[in-house]
């Protein structure tokens, strides 16, 4: 039974609290709004570019941001990157379009094909490279570039607790602590004037919770997975974390808490990294060329 109202539970949160539909929806929204306030994610005068993939996390995010931002007249729009992944992105794009149309939200779509000349599928045929390593770099680049072009002052993404815990552990396992310095609910602040700060309002909600929310809200989500995700390092780390979570509830939250505890000193330690400008495309870059120009040899 639900802890508060004795209705049938739809989920057990934090390993031992059964919640009914009504109580869960309230818990979920409260936690997102708390995160926004607690970490000062959004200023009234911000213009928010919401990274939209059409999946459950991004549509949940868009739904909730619409709910808070529209009444306080903060401007926002959806920004969707079409990597060109057949059987996956073409489907989620339709979901995103449908949701935005029904809710009167502006949606901008930028594609790899138009920007780089090839879809991700085509690039992967030509190059021997890890799909997600390439895809992630290209997507972050385009989101930042076009968020800025369209006047955004913040980029909101649908990253959830699972994503964050995975990233933290992946960085740890690969010895990439400098990458962890860039994690947290609010990132990218003041490192380069071309970088738009990123915020993650779903930071403290698990993937199971976001899925449950989107399902109970009947958001137009097709539950499919990118064909490149399976067998990725992230997938493996995610499975391991979920196995631990089932045995020791709260594991994912603890991993994230551990990062939050050391994040200020971590950020200080890696602050020395200078960010310059890419010689070719004039976007922010750590070396002479940005990662995109380097990877695509353009």
């Amino acid at each position: 039974m639900c802890k508060t109202c004795k209705e049938n539970p739809v989920i057990i949160i934090q390993g031992n609290k059964p919640l009914c539909k009504g109580c869960f929806m309230k818990y979920f929204e409260k936690k997102v709004f708390w995160t926004i306030r607690q970490y000062n994610l959004i200023d009234k005068k911000d213009i928010i570019a919401v990274g939209v993939s059409g999946g459950k996390d991004s549509l949940t995010l868009l739904y909730l941001l619409n709910k808070v931002l529209t009444p306080q007249k903060t401007k926002f729009f959806g920004l969707l990157i079409d990597e060109g992944i057949k059987g996956y992105r073409n489907i989620t794009i339709e979901d995103a379009k449908k949701f935005c149309k029904e809710n009167g939200i502006e949606l901008k779509i930028i594609s790899y094909k138009k920007e780089f000349g090839n879809t991700l599928d085509e690039m992967l045929k030509q190059k021997k490279i890890n799909a997600c390593a390439l895809c992630g770099v290209l997507r972050r680049y385009l989101i930042n570039k076009y968020a800025r072009k369209y006047g955004a002052t913040k980029i909101a993404t649908g990253h959830n607790l699972d994503d964050e815990a995975q990233s933290i552990l992946m960085n740890q396992l690969k010895g990439n602590m400098a990458f962890s310095a860039k994690l947290g609910p609010k990132t990218g602040v003041l490192t380069h004037d071309q970088f738009i700060p990123r915020i993650k309002p779903l930071y403290f909600l698990t993937e199971k919770e976001t899925t449950t929310f989107s399902k109970l809200k009947n958001l137009p989500v097709t539950f499919i997975e990118c064909p490149n995700h399976k067998d990725s390092f992230r997938d493996e780390v995610g499975k391991m974390l979920s196995n631990l979570e089932a045995k020791y509830p709260g594991t994912k939250q603890s991993v994230v808490n551990s990062l939050l505890q050391v994040l200020p000193s971590l950020a200080k330690q890696f602050k020395g990294q200078k960010i310059g400008t890419c010689k070719k495309c004039k976007e922010p870059a750590a070396k002479d060329l940005c990662k995109v120009c380097e990877l695509l040899k353009r």
Partner: peptide, 8 residues
């Protein structure tokens, strides 16, 4: 049973 994993 709906999988909550949605890599992408």
């Amino acid at each position: 049973l709906l999988s909550v994993v949605s890599g992408g």
